[in-house]
Amino acid sequence: MPSVIIDKDRCKGCELCVYACPEDVLAMSDEINAKGYFVPIVAHPENCTGCRYCLLVCPDVAIQVENKGKVTKPPESLTGKPFSYCPGCTHGVIHRLIAEVMDELGIQERTVGIAPVGCSVLAYEFFACDMQEASHGRAMAVATGIKRGRPDLTVFTYQGDGDLASIGMAETVHAANRGEKITVIFVNNAIYGMTGGQMAPTTLPGQVASTCPTGRDVTLTGYPIRVVELLKSLRTPAYLARVTVTDPKNVLAAKKAIRKAFKYQLEGTCFSLVEVLSTCPIGWGETPHDACGWLQENMVPYYPLGEVKVPEEATVQAGS
């Protein structure tokens, strides 16, 4: 019978696993871990089918699943250091997916990752490959420097929406337009998480943030920028996709896109950028689960999911 193993020390009690389990195997308990979080327990082990949905949504790599004598393991491309993110923040899920892809492609020893300025500023402590910490918005310029100097290395950036689409927009557009052979993971949470929830270029119309306390007024601040659609207008071939990680199905789709984004780099094909719609439960003032619902209800309609540009199509376009 499959079973779920919860690493109580890593758990932040976000409850996302409890909601994700289609068989009601998990339930929250009264038990408090060393960090002060209520942890879930395996309430109905007999119901477990080994679907791994709980593992897929856990933002803190706190769940492993045993099935037919085989136990899942945390990705080797993560250092194992506990993430610094708030409970239920999906930054952690995205980290895990990138690390899994690095493991599967066997590229950890030739990869350089670039951490941004934002909540993921400490990403260099979490990814187990070589890392560089960039200044705010310049991750793609830093990546360009590395990739042009050492084309044999695999280079990825991990950037928030303030970082990539506001202060770093020039670097973004030009790295894409030059067709830098790099992989960009763009974490869009519609807010400046790190500095306390200010308006981002991606904040939705009417959305309240600490610098638009009555809601974003598009007559004064313009409309949220759809980054992948904007980059699509460039003639240079690229792989551009938008995904989210609010639920197991979407987590799997996100991983597929991230994997493609690395493969295109490994094949020397093109610039790749995967926009991941991500939650900021703290900044939005929602529980982690409700934040996932809010994202689906409000962000997905404005930021449609899917592949927006694939290099093959772009090559055809370029000939026209």
Binding site: Q132, A141, V142, T144, G145, R148, G149
Partner: peptide, 8 residues
């Protein structure tokens, strides 16, 4: 910042 990356 490209210098930073390349030198790094």
């Amino acid at each position: 910042n490209m210098l930073y990356g390349a030198a790094g």
